[in-house]
């Protein structure tokens, strides 16, 4: 392996990123099929973009990919914390700098010269998606095993509230996903960096 100091993304970041991407896509598409069995908002995702074919198949996918999502997510968080990368890359955090970067982004003037450095908008977005995924797992645990996790169930407002939270956290994740893909399309070098590491 070449000089690792040149790496923008170490290997473990790239591997967990792509495993997470696969898990999230499976979870979202199978989750839509499960939601469609009993929608609680006045809309439902079209069946063609869901995974599993029927409720039973979708549940099989969902409860298989959950192990991938959780196992990979824990590995990512552990590496992130132990290596100190979490603090180096996503902190410090300044609301003023965040607003300045949002304004710059809206004007199309936010620079991406150094891919190893995350601007405040990126830091906010990536931290948000980490928290959102944790929330998805916790609300998911309440839906899967509402009797066995009473404390979590009550903290999250009960089974029916957790259903809505799970859905809204999914919607936030999909929104992140869309923006993420658009940004990669605008700055394609970031895709190469996430594959090759530099």
């Amino acid at each position: 392996m070449a000089n690792t100091t040149d790496l923008i993304h170490p290997r473990w970041v790239r591997i967990t990123h792509w495993v997470n991407a696969v898990a999230v896509v499976i979870m979202a598409m199978s989750g839509w099929r499960i939601y469609n069995a009993s929608p609680f908002f006045p809309f439902a995702p079209p069946g063609q973009i869901t995974l599993g074919g029927w409720l039973g198949g979708a549940i099989q996918w969902h409860f298989a990919a959950m192990w991938l999502l959780v196992g990979n997510g824990l590995l990512y968080l552990a590496c992130n914390i132990i290596s100190g990368r979490l603090w180096r890359k996503f902190f410090p955090w300044s609301p003023r700098a965040f607003l300045a970067d949002v304004l710059a982004a809206l004007k199309g003037k936010l620079a991406h010269a150094d891919l190893s450095h995350y601007n405040m908008v990126q830091r906010a977005a990536y931290l948000f998606v980490m928290v959102d995924l944790v929330l998805l797992v916790l609300t998911g645990l309440v839906l899967w095993k509402s009797v066995q996790f009473p404390l979590l169930r009550e903290l999250l407002g009960g089974y029916e509230v957790a259903r809505r939270e799970h859905f809204l956290a999914m919607a936030a994740l999909v929104a992140f996903f869309v923006v993420h893909i658009v940004m990669v399309a605008l700055v394609p070098r970031t895709l190469l960096a996430m594959i090759r590491g530099r």
């Binding site: 599993g52 074919g53 029927w54 198949g57 979708a58 996918w61």
Partner: peptide, 9 residues
């Protein structure tokens, strides 16, 4: 069911 599982999934 087998058919739809393969179609959708």
């Amino acid at each position: 069911l087998q058919r739809t599982l393969s179609l959708g999934g």
